[in-house]
């Protein structure tokens, strides 16, 4: 238990892929950040929430065999770097695919899935994963 607030405060970002856009240079950031690394001071107070489409392409992927406890029952699972159409790259699982179907450059889209569970009695943490388009 514990960490409830840490999970809860990321809900919008993890459930709906809400990014931050720099009001100065218009660059999109996911995960969200409060200061644009390009515009620095000019971006402060100008980072606006922006909904991402959830569409992107596989930048790279791996099939993870040696898994942390929260993912032990899922192994082997696919972890990927996904480059979203709006620009940001994020780290997420790709599900519902045979490993042989995976390839860098292939189109993927975001889906809503369980990410991890806090044991049988704890909270269920949901968020984005991706499937091949």
């Amino acid at each position: 238990m514990g960490k409830l607030s840490a999970v809860w405060r990321e809900t919008n970002h993890r459930y709906r892929l809400v990014a931050h856009q720099c009001g100065n240079c218009k660059k999109m950031y996911f995960p969200p950040r409060d200061i644009c690394p390009d515009c620095h001071r000019e971006s402060i107070g100008k980072m606006k929430e922006k909904q991402l489409s959830g569409n992107g392409r596989i930048e790279s992927f791996t099939i993870v065999h040696d898994a942390p406890s929260a993912f032990a029952r899922q192994r082997p699972y696919v972890l990927a770097l996904v480059k979203l159409d709006e620009g940001p790259i994020l780290t997420a699982q790709i599900v519902d695919s045979d490993f042989s179907e995976l390839e860098a450059g292939k189109k993927v889209r975001a889906v809503f899935r369980k990410i991890r569970e806090d044991g049988k009695g704890g909270i269920i943490q949901y968020g984005y994963k991706f499937v091949l388009e």
Binding site: P31, V64, L79, A80, T91
Partner: peptide
């Protein structure tokens, strides 16, 4: 944003390697 979604040090290295 990495480990939460199943990232491990080896997995991240593997993403670079591939």
């Amino acid at each position: 944003w990495e480990a939460f979604f199943g990232g491990t040090p080896a997995a991240m290295a593997a993403l670079s390697a591939r």
